[in-house]
C-alpha cells in the first residue's frame, strides 16, 4: 500500500487539535524559560532591577564553596529521600498489588487520603511533631523517661543509667537534614508507590511461579524476574520523587530551620530578599540542567537492564 499524502483538511484538523497545548507550552513554559535564561546572563541593578548583559559572572559565582556546599547537601538530601521512598514504597506497592483485587483500590485510597490535606498544613504538622517541645520529645523526655525511671527502681540494672541520661534531654530533631528528609519522604511517598504499583500489578504472576519452578528461591526470583520486569515503575517513581526533592522549598523552609538550607531556599532568597534576579536565575538553570542530565542518564540505565 502506498502512503497517501495527508489531505489539507486533515492537516488543518491536526493543527487545530494541537493548538491549545502548543499555545500553553509557548506562553507558559518556553517564554518564561527563555526569559529566565536571559536574566541569568544579566547583572543585578543597583536598586534590584536587571541590567541586561551577556556575562557568565553569575554562573561563576555558583562555584563559590558556600553554594557548592549547599548544592552538595541538596543533592544528598534528594538522593536519600529517593532511596528511602524506594525501599519503603516498593514493598508497600508490592503488598497492595498482591492483595485480592477487591482490596487494592481501598488500600490505594488509604494511601491517598492524607494527601487531600494541603501540603503546607501537613508540613506544619511535622513541625509540631519534631520541634523541641513537640510530641515526639514529649514522649521521649516525659513518657519514656518516666517509664525508665520506674523500671530502674523496680529492676536495678546497670543499663538504666545511660538510658535515663539520654532521655533526660530532648532530641534535636527539628532543623536537621533528617527533619527535611522525613518531611520529603512523607510528601513524595505516593509518587513512588503509584508507578511501582502499576508496574507490579501488571506483572504476570505465572512468571514468578515459573522462576520458582526453575529452582529460584524467593530472593533469586525477586532479583532475576520481579525487579527487572517492574524496573519501569522503579525508574518512573524515582524520577517523580527525586526531581521535586531536588527543587524542594517549602519543606526545608519549615523543617530545616535556619541551619539546614537547600537550593530551593537559596533561589527564593535571591529573588525575594537579595533581589538578585540574575543570580537566582543562574542557580535555577544549573539545578534544572542537573535534573535533566541526571534523569536522562537514569532513564538510559533503567531501560537498558
Amino acid at each position: 500500500m502506498e502512503i497517501q499524502p495527508r489531505s489539507r483538511r486533515e492537516t488543518r484538523r491536526l493543527i487545530f487539535l494541537i493548538a491549545p497545548s502548543l499555545f500553553w507550552l509557548l506562553v507558559f513554559f518556553l517564554f518564561p524559560l527563555v526569559l529566565v535564561l536571559a536574566i541569568s546572563f544579566g547583572q543585578r541593578g543597583t536598586y534590584g532591577g536587571v541590567e541586561w548583559s551577556l556575562s557568565l559572572q553569575n554562573y561563576r559565582r555558583f562555584f563559590d564553596p558556600l553554594y557548592l556546599r549547599i548544592f552538595g547537601r541538596t543533592l544528598l538530601i534528594a538522593l536519600t529521600t529517593t532511596v528511602i521512598c524506594l525501599v519503603t514504597g516498593y514493598p508497600l506497592a508490592y503488598f497492595i498489588a498482591t492483595r485480592p483485587p477487591r482490596w487494592r483500590n481501598g488500600l490505594l485510597l488509604l494511601l491517598m487520603i492524607p494527601f487531600w490535606t494541603n501540603f503546607l498544613i501537613r508540613t506544619y504538622a511535622w513541625l509540631l511533631l519534631l520541634r523541641d517541645q513537640g510530641l515526639i520529645n514529649m514522649l521521649w523526655t516525659g513518657g519514656l523517661h518516666n517509664a525508665l525511671l520506674w523500671l530502674s527502681n523496680t529492676v536495678p540494672l546497670p543499663v538504666w543509667g545511660r538510658l535515663l541520661e539520654a532521655t533526660s534531654t530532648s532530641l534535636s530533631l527539628f532543623g536537621t537534614n533528617g527533619a527535611i528528609i522525613v518531611g520529603l519522604v512523607y510528601g513524595w511517598l505516593p509518587d513512588m508507590v503509584l508507578p511501582c504499583y502499576a508496574a507490579i500489578e501488571r506483572l504476570d504472576h505465572s512468571l514468578v511461579e515459573a522462576a520458582q519452578d526453575l529452582y529460584a528461591n524467593r530472593v533469586q526470583s525477586f532479583l532475576r524476574v520481579i525487579l527487572p520486569l517492574t524496573m519501569s515503575g522503579v525508574v518512573a517513581g524515582s524520577v517523580l520523587v527525586f526531581i521535586p526533592s531536588l527543587g524542594a522549598y517549602v519543606t526545608p523552609d519549615l523543617l530545616g530551620g535556619a541551619k539546614s538550607v537547600m537550593m530551593g531556599n537559596v533561589i527564593y532568597s535571591q529573588f525575594m530578599s537579595a533581589r538578585d534576579y540574575p543570580f537566582g536565575a543562574a542557580i535555577s538553570f544549573v539545578l534544572m540542567t542537573v535534573m535533566l542530565v541526571g534523569t536522562l542518564i537514569y532513564f538510559r540505565l533503567g531501560t537498558e537492564s
Binding site: D204, A210, V225
Partner: peptide, 13 residues
C-alpha cells in the same frame, strides 16, 4: 519437578 505453563510463562526480558 518442572512445569510447562499454560501461557508458557517465558521471561520476556
Amino acid at each position: 519437578v518442572n512445569t510447562v505453563f499454560q501461557n508458557y510463562a517465558l521471561f520476556p526480558h
